[in-house]
Design a protein around this nucleic acid. Structure first.
Length: 340
DNA sequence: GAACCGTGGTA
DNA sequence: TTACCAAGGTT
């Protein structure tokens, strides 16, 4: 059977990860660890997640600890990892789970929780609770598309791929199987230049036999990214405090600590956040999911009371608590103004 | 279904 | 430098 071939491969080649219980061990992983890692891994690489996972579980060892955390502390700890709605939903979810006394152990109930969609519900059900849920992520889609030579492009082929994934999912060791397919996709059945020569499924892979494995899954072409412009303000008081603001709770970088900026478009620039002499010291470039951004960096030294935002004392200001865009701007502004 | 939502690594 | 890409969810 296909699944057993893959499980045999996984028993030997499973990658080590801080949230994972190696194959062969009888114990179940902590559902809190499984959930936290799966949320962090949404559209994010294992390498990027590893340190954040260790940081979160050290600081908040249980879901009850996380539920009791301050919003701003969690957002600051998540800073740099991206997709900040995940952090907002992480807290909502932790609080719901704490209130109900633990994680639900079925796919359907997990799906009701904030930030848990079809993939994460299936992954937690399978990995934490050993339920034979059908786990379908980008890896599984790619592996199935190649294994069965599905030439129809995504996302149209998604239901076909789901049906195929369900056909492969075993009743035995479904949690290990789910991680095995994803490991296969991450290490052998990679998006570019797949290592078909060492693949445990090479014999039965019709995509490889047809010589089109590397071209699959086909995808519809993506739209070009527009470039937006604006200005970011770095204002510093003589005592070192910096003018900051918390971004609106929804939307891009929602809920995150940030430097004040204009709108990002071709619209006329709104007034600066305080009345003073601004000096242009350069620009920062940053690319988001669906647009490029170029911000002029304006600096000033001032005592003035801001029209918006708040002065944050130097000792209370950690640039690592900012989204990457603002880390860049902060660094440029700080170096332009020089030491206090 | 499609738009929105980050980041860092890689070719 | 640019474009693509990764263990998706929400609206």
């Amino acid at each position: 059977m296909d699944a057993d071939t893959l499980l045999d491969w996984y028993d030997v080649h499973a990658r080590e990860m801080p949230w994972r219980v190696p194959p062969g061990e009888a114990r179940r992983p902590d559902p809190y660890h499984v959930w936290l890692s799966e949320v962090m891994l949404q559209q994010t690489t294992v390498a990027a997640v590893r340190d954040y996972f260790v940081k979160f579980t050290s600081r908040w060892p249980t879901v009850d600890d996380l539920a009791a955390a301050e919003d701003a502390d969690v957002m600051a700890a998540w800073a740099g990892l991206g997709y900040y709605a995940r952090a907002r939903n992480l807290l909502k979810c932790a609080r719901e789970v704490a209130a109900r006394g633990g994680f639900p152990d079925t796919e359907a109930d997990l799906l009701d929780l904030p930030g848990i969609g079809p993939y994460t519900a299936a992954a937690v059900a399978a990995i934490a609770f050993d339920r034979p849920a059908v786990v379908l992520d980008g890896n599984v889609e790619r592996v199935m598309a190649r294994r069965h030579a599905i030439e129809e492009p995504l996302p149209d082929s998604k239901e076909t791929l789901r049906t195929l994934a369900a056909r492969h999912t075993p009743q035995h060791r479904p949690g290990d199987y789910a991680q095995a397919v994803m490991d296969l996709g991450a290490t052998i059945c990679t998006p570019k230049s797949p290592a078909c020569g060492i693949c445990p499924w090479m014999e039965e892979c019709t995509g490889r036999l047809a010589g089109i494995a590397a071209e699959l899954p086909r995808k519809r072409p993506k739209k070009a990214k527009p470039t937006r412009h604006g200005t970011v303000y770095f204002a510093r008081r003589p005592d070192g405090a910096v003018l900051m603001e918390t971004r609106p709770p929804k939307g891009l970088l929602g809920g995150m600590l940030a430097l004040p900026t204009t709108d990002w478009s071709d619209a006329p620039a709104p007034a600066p956040p305080l009345t003073t002499e601004w000096r242009d010291v350069g620009e920062v470039r940053h690319t988001f999911t669906h647009f490029h951004l170029i911000l002029d960096v304006a600096v000033a030294e001032s005592f003035a009371n801001p029209d918006r935002g708040m002065w944050v004392e130097r000792h209370a200001l950690d640039p690592d608590a900012l989204p990457t865009l603002f880390r860049k701007a902060f660094k440029l502004g700080q170096s332009a103004l020089g030491p206090i």
